[in-house]
């Protein structure tokens, strides 16, 4: 399992695109503005937990809802 410190913005852009089923995600795109909802949010969080062993909550994702912000959050885990 890759260490949380190795996560990149591109990884998170890729993850958002896979879950949202769209190509239109940039580093600063807001997950919820791009069609993300509570159900899809759980899938982002389970993927992050699986890949980096980092368990985040809904509220943390709402506060860090772009690939760039989420990358920073994971890198600095547990913060």
């Amino acid at each position: 399992m890759p260490a949380p410190s190795t996560v990149t913005v591109d990884d998170m852009v890729g993850l958002f695109q896979r879950i949202l089923e769209t190509d239109g995600v940039g580093p600063d795109s807001d997950f919820f503005d791009q069609g993300g909802d509570s159900l899809l949010a759980t899938r982002v969080l389970s993927a992050v937990a699986r890949q980096y062993d980092v368990e985040l909550t809904f509220i943390q994702l709402i506060d860090a809802a772009s690939p760039a912000a989420l990358t920073k959050l994971i890198k600095n885990f547990p913060g």
Partner: peptide, 16 residues
């Protein structure tokens, strides 16, 4: 919103 007060990662596992 519609975020239930449950373990989000666990729900994500189920939905995956």
């Amino acid at each position: 919103g519609r975020f239930p007060p449950l373990n989000a990662t666990a729900l994500g596992d189920l939905f995956d």
